[in-house]
């Protein structure tokens, strides 16, 4: 069995399973709260990796069925976009 602090839940922001479990036990049982404190879901993937895992953890600790929980809100622009792209400038860097 891998150690909780060796399991990365959020690859954008390097958040471990241990971090998540500790926060839930401290009373942060809403994924939006966990996002704000750990930045899970604030990276380029917007929670597509960590979201489901966090919901499962919240469900296991609080007993609330996972289908009653909602994912983090996705924010525009829904994927990284460079300022130069917004400005319509050519992007020489690929």
């Amino acid at each position: 069995m891998m150690k909780e602090d060796n399991i990365i839940v959020c690859r954008c922001e390097d958040v471990t399973l241990k971090d998540i479990r500790e926060l839930i036990k401290r009373g942060y049982t809403n994924i939006e709260e966990i996002k704000r404190i750990t930045r899970c879901g604030m990276g380029p993937c917007q929670g597509k990796n960590c979201g489901q895992i966090i919901l499962r953890e919240i469900s296991m600790i609080t007993g609330i069925p996972v289908e009653k929980l909602t994912l983090q809100r996705y924010r525009p622009p829904f994927g990284g976009i460079k300022f130069s792209e917004v400005l319509g400038e050519n992007n020489d860097e690929k």
Binding site: G80, F83, S84, L87, E89
Partner: peptide, 11 residues
């Protein structure tokens, strides 16, 4: 230099 940076979220 910000031109090269990626915007990831707005709210």
């Amino acid at each position: 230099p910000l031109k090269k940076l990626r915007i990831v979220r707005q709210w």
